[in-house]
């Protein structure tokens, strides 16, 4: 009788663990994507509504941490620092499909990357001299960089901060490295083929697709800019 009880309890335990694993796989493969779609939508909405209300370079003085507030009215105001964890730009990569659009948020913490792409804090601003570095999920949370290895030299990476379109061009095929190789997001990234200061962009994601042993890196340089009032850049039509 007690043997039967043990066997029964053991089999129930196995079934329970099996069900747990199946549920977890559903969560990782499917539910994180649903959540990311939701979160991304919210970020894009907040960006669009912010862009609709006044220029981006002069956000409402909500942060109160701007020391140069007093006599900034005459000169063009210094660009406001990106707010931690908040979206500040949209990224489009035509190679990944027409509908591929993701918000870029400030910092690369786990919670931030669940809502969109993350800009490495401390790297250059969008369009500025230096290296504008962005990380994104390869898998889970909407799979933004799923097709990362498809990037080829000349591919466009288009970004907008609400006032300007920035078109970056990929310089070489994605480069595979180890996670500790922080030189890839240097102002003049090592191994990128760029040899002097310039306006660069770096994308990073994980490799292999479901692993974390390596990173895939793509570098691009600023090719063109144009005000949003002049419509979408030509890179969308190529």
């Amino acid at each position: 009788m007690s043997v039967r009880l043990i066997v029964r309890t053991f089999s129930e335990l196995c079934i329970t663990i099996g069900a747990l694993i199946v549920l977890f796989v559903v969560y990782v493969l499917f539910w994180t994507g649903v959540q990311a779609a939701d979160a991304t939508e919210g970020q894009i909405d907040s960006l669009r509504s912010r862009w609709a209300h006044g220029p981006v370079s002069a956000p409402p003085p909500r942060s109160s941490a701007t020391p140069n507030a007093p006599n900034a009215s005459k000169e063009p105001p210094a660009p406001a620092a990106y707010r931690d964890g908040k979206p500040f730009a949209m990224m489009y990569i035509p190679r990944f499909g027409k509908g591929w659009e993701w918000p870029v948020l400030e910092n690369t913490e786990v919670r931030t990357l669940q809502k969109g792409l993350g800009h490495y804090t401390g790297t250059a601003r969008l369009g500025a001299t230096g290296n504008f570095a962005v990380a994104g999920h390869r898998r889970t949370y909407g799979d933004p960089f799923k097709d990362f290895p498809e990037l080829r030299p000349g591919d466009a990476v288009v970004l907008t901060d609400g006032t300007t379109w920035f078109t970056y061009r990929i310089g070489r095929k994605p480069y595979r490295t180890v996670p500790s190789d922080i030189g890839v997001i240097d102002p003049v990234p090592r191994k990128s083929g760029f040899d002097g200061p310039g306006r660069y962009l770096t994308l990073t994601t994980c490799d292999p697709e479901w692993g974390s042993s390596h990173r895939l890196i793509a570098w691009a340089h600023l090719d063109a800019t144009q005000p949003v009032t002049e419509g979408k850049p030509a890179a969308f039509h190529s």
Binding site: Y27, L113, A135, P179, D181, I182, S213
Partner: peptide
């Protein structure tokens, strides 16, 4: 989920091989 490696997409050296 964050304990699994799918979210390690940055080059900060804090995961994987260490260093950095």
């Amino acid at each position: 989920e964050p304990l699994l490696p799918f979210g390690d997409v940055t080059v900060d050296g804090s995961t994987g091989t260490g260093g950095g």
